[in-house]
Design a protein around this nucleic acid. Structure first.
Lengths: 135, 135
DNA sequence: TTGTTCGTAACTTTTGCAGTTGCATTTGTA
DNA sequence: TACAAATGCAACTGCAAAAGTTACGAACAA
């Protein structure tokens, strides 16, 4: 795959699941559709399960299912579940000895945090069911 | 260095140059201060030169200098000069055969473009001279 | 009890980027 | 003119993060 692949994979998969929420899908099915590997799928969807967006069941007839109605899952939920911020790094800047560096970092961080917040806000305005509706 | 290192290096360097705009600095000086390598510095600053933010001179007493007054160079100028968008990818999504993927991409791209625009707008509100002023 | 599926760990491959080296070119100075 | 100092650039190495792969255990339904 390419860059931002985890988020792409997650959003793509959930958007599909929104289309027929009762259907159970296996990692293999999903992987095949997404052109990737079942283990990769389990890694990514595992994060979504931790966040309570999906449920998974082992064994025969097991697989993945939405934990809520598609209308109740927004793009922001998916984004936040993966815990990879696109914009703000969430801190950690190893206390530079350089005051200019420090001042710069403070200024830039503040901008990035604002932008991150606005990103999440915008993503939260679309549910995974709406995506499909627009196709 | 770490993540986003090119942008960090560029902003850091220009913020310093804003402090004494007439001083010429060599790649080596800059590299030493930033804890990196002269060639890396030239690679990054070269982009800023292409964008008209810096000038460079070869030979004895050569080096790097701001092309404009520090007040006239904003963080957005630096960001845009490097041509690495943090948020919007600027396109290229290999025309998926999957309509859900397509719809999703359209929706997400639109959000990202908005966010990118707002990022640039916020960065443009601070000049490299102001950064230092806040230290 | 057998087969299917997730859960997870360990390893390999790929990829992007920093870092490095080397050399041509330009330019100021002795 | 000769030399040293600086950028410009190309090619290579090294490294780290992520995807991909393999393997196996655990859970569960038929």
């Amino acid at each position: 795959m390419k860059r931002n692949s985890r988020l792409s994979l997650a959003l793509h998969t959930l958007s599909h699941m929104a289309g027929s929420p009762d259907r159970v899908r296996t990692s293999s099915d999903i992987a095949e559709h997404a052109g990737t590997n079942p283990v990769v799928v389990r890694r990514v969807l595992g994060k979504l399960r931790e966040a309570g967006l999906l449920t998974s069941e082992k064994g025969h007839a097991g697989g993945w299912r939405l934990a809520h109605k598609p209308q109740d899952i927004t793009l922001a939920d998916v984004y936040l579940a993966l815990d990879e911020r696109m914009v703000a790094t969430g801190e950690a800047s190893e206390a530079s000895a350089c005051s200019v560096e420090h001042a710069l970092h403070k200024r830039v961080s503040s901008v990035l945090e604002d932008v991150e917040e606005s990103l999440v806000k915008k993503l939260s305005e679309t549910s995974i069911s709406e995506v499909r509706g627009n196709a």
